[in-house]
Amino acid sequence: MPREITYREALREGLDEELARDENVCIIGEEVAQYNGAYKVTEGLWKKWGDKRVIDAPISEAGFIGMGIGASMLGIRPVMELMFYSFAYVAFDQMMNNAATCRYMSGGLTNCPIVVRGPANGGTNVGATHSHTPENIFANMPGLKVVTPSNPYDAKGLIKSAIRDNDPVYFMESTVLYGMTGLVPSNDELEGGELIVPIGKARVSREGSDLTLLAHGRAVVTSLAAAEILGAQHGISVEVVDLRSIRPLDEETIMASVRKTHRAIYVEENKPFCGVGAQISSMIMEQAFDDLDAPVLRITSADAPAFYSPPIEKLQLPTADEIVARALTIC
């Protein structure tokens, strides 16, 4: 029977299964081992797998992420945890130059099967330095993959795919989603005995016919809530497409939905300037212009650093009410 488990537990199951499957998989990060993870994603894994496989790193992101990249070139498959994805900026040279371009600059002689995972979200009153959403920044770099699960099922299935992938995968979670529950099948009820979600396939989370809300990460949850309101209160049938990965991108599913509904809004917690929605709306304009009955809109975080003050920060992120209001302008 599918079990109701949290996003956090789903990730942990995925990590645990991959640790069991391949002895070259190891977990490295700040507080991932003895502390059981700053957000308890890795809880219990150190006790189960020991010092060799689950390793507490000093607060030294450029150092340990770079070290993981070097180790991955020799066949280790490190899963690096960033306590916050905001800390990626401390390791930026390693993540952008070394992980992303070594394969190219070596003419294909090397590859870096590394996963760098952690929460990439605002909305938790921790100020601007801890609230960055860099999915657009890393997706800008060819050679990298960017994955953004929005629910427990995908969190488990995608982390397993990410670990098996032979390219660098930057896996962006959300602290707000860690406690979210959802149905995740147990392995014994799955064909093949395990849950795998391929990277590069979007999911139609909700079917509809009047408007497509495109989103990734936690914005999918917000979009689904808005879709309910639009349907119940305004009679608008909304389709929600969860990209699941930004790069590679499931263009077909996006375009098919837009061609069906003729209206699209991209919803994201990313910033607007050159955000993911900017890329997607440009693609829709190029590929589905004649199918559109309205301009493609984008709903993003406010174009400002994250505000600390809790009631104000809430207003910076996309809300269901905002989505409803903007949708009504084009429907």
Binding site: I65, G66, M67, I69, G70, A71, M73, I76
Partner: peptide, 12 residues
Amino acid sequence: GQTPLGAGLAFA
């Protein structure tokens, strides 16, 4: 930039 990678090769 290569110095953490060197540590990584040794780690491996």
